[in-house]
Nucleic acid binder design. Structure first.
Length: 264
DNA sequence: CTCCATGTTTAGAA
DNA sequence: CTTCTAAACATGGA
């Protein structure tokens, strides 16, 4: 589930379990995920240095070494997560990277191994090199609206375009459209300014609520789509069976009654 | 066996 | 140039 809220939970987990203790050992079990750094140099860069800070931009997690002269970069792909380890623990199944301290450690786990483990001078440099847009939770209203109306095409595609706004994926894009009462294939040009401003507020509300819920759909407010986003699922507001439609190359889930585009 | 999945990148068509 | 689609990547689960 690694979209912005999930990665934010991983970041907070790392803050609790991974900072201010020297790294004693790292294991790279999936070298193919490394970008721009070898397993050997990653070990050399981290070993005997404490990790001192974390930063998240969109779906990317950055971890600073002491001195902040270099940052570990993690992207979780489709299936990745970050798990704390106890001292005696075997690495979990599908652990791609494990970092051990004198006591405990952390593991980057990715069963589907579509992710990235990298090293960068700074989060800003990485964001620029990878052409990421502003973080979805850092974007102010006027900047959001201005960036949105610069483009055409579907609202959902823009929300999921990491180069325009970073952090939203297919699942949370569906939730945002549901909360906005917009059909999945709504075009940007169909939004008047008031609706664009409302969309900005909804993006922030949905992502914040998801973080508050520990990125666990089961803990989201009762009127959220996500817990029902599966075959046979019904709209939490009106009870109608949810439907799917393809947009932006992904399947989207929606309520055909609540998301008619006329009010909501 | 087939199809699908929370992501990104690349190539190609309009 | 923009927008949209499809494929590829790796792998597990239904």
């Amino acid at each position: 589930m690694p979209e912005l809220p999930d990665v934010e939970i991983f970041r907070r987990r790392l803050d609790r379990h991974g900072l201010d203790r020297p790294v004693r050992r790292i294991t790279v079990a999936a070298p193919d995920l490394l970008e721009g750094v070898s397993p050997q140099s990653l070990g050399r860069l981290l070993k005997n240095h404490p990790l001192v800070a974390t930063h998240r931009h969109g779906k990317y997690l950055f971890v600073a070494r002491d001195g902040r002269d270099g940052w570990l970069v993690l992207h979780f792909g489709m299936s990745g997560s970050l798990e704390p380890l106890e001292s005696g623990d075997e690495p979990p199944e599908h652990a791609c990277l494990t970092v051990r301290f004198d006591e405990g450690g952390i593991a980057y786990v990715a069963p589907r191994r579509l992710g990235l483990i990298g090293w960068t001078e700074s989060p800003d440099a990485f964001v620029q090199a990878h052409r990421l847009g502003p973080d979805a939770l850092a974007m102010e209203r006027d900047a959001f609206v201005a960036a949105l109306v610069q483009h055409h095409g579907m609202v959902k595609c823009w929300l999921m375009d990491q180069g325009r706004i970073a952090g939203i994926g297919n699942v949370y894009a569906d939730e945002i459209l549901f909360q906005a009462g917009l059909p999945p294939r709504t075009g940007i040009t169909a939004l008047e300014r008031e609706k664009a401003e409302r969309l900005h507020a909804i993006v922030r509300r949905v992502l914040s609520a998801a973080i508050e819920a520990q990125a666990d759909p089961g803990r989201l407010p009762d009127d959220y789509l996500l817990p029902h986003r599966e075959p046979g699922g019904q709209c939490p507001r009106c009870g109608v069976s949810l439907a799917t439609v393809e947009a932006c190359g992904r399947r989207g889930w929606y309520c055909p009654a609540c998301q008619s585009g006329r009010g909501g």
